[in-house]
């Protein structure tokens, strides 16, 4: 397979498995060329990034009562 003729699956697999690869390597240059011209890969990558961002934004907070209960369990109530 020519480096410049990768399909979408190859591109994504390569990106995901080789994070940290030298940006100027022939593989990376071929990937960038493909990505720049492939709407499918761009959409797929966008959806992967959004998946990560959605989970990053889904947070829960420790309430005061939870904190107080924890401090009690640890017998640190006099150190508040």
């Amino acid at each position: 397979m020519k480096e410049t003729n990768k399909n979408c699956s190859d591109v994504i697999n390569h990106i995901c498995e080789n994070l940290g690869e030298d940006n100027n390597s022939p593989n990376c240059i071929a990937l960038k060329e493909h990505l720049n011209n492939c709407p499918n890969c761009q959409s797929y990558l966008k959806s992967l990034k959004l998946t990560i961002n959605l989970y990053k934004n889904y947070n829960v907070k420790v309430t005061d009562s939870m904190h107080n209960k924890l401090v009690e369990i640890l017998e640190l109530t006099d150190c508040r």
């Binding site: 979408c8 959409s43 797929y44 959605l54 934004n57």
Partner: peptide, 20 residues
């Protein structure tokens, strides 16, 4: 197989900051 079914690719239009 973690390959991509290219017919299943749709453009996502979700704002993560509106998640709450």
């Amino acid at each position: 197989d973690t390959g991509i079914n290219e017919s299943e690719i749709v453009d996502w239009d979700i704002a993560p900051d509106k998640l709450t």
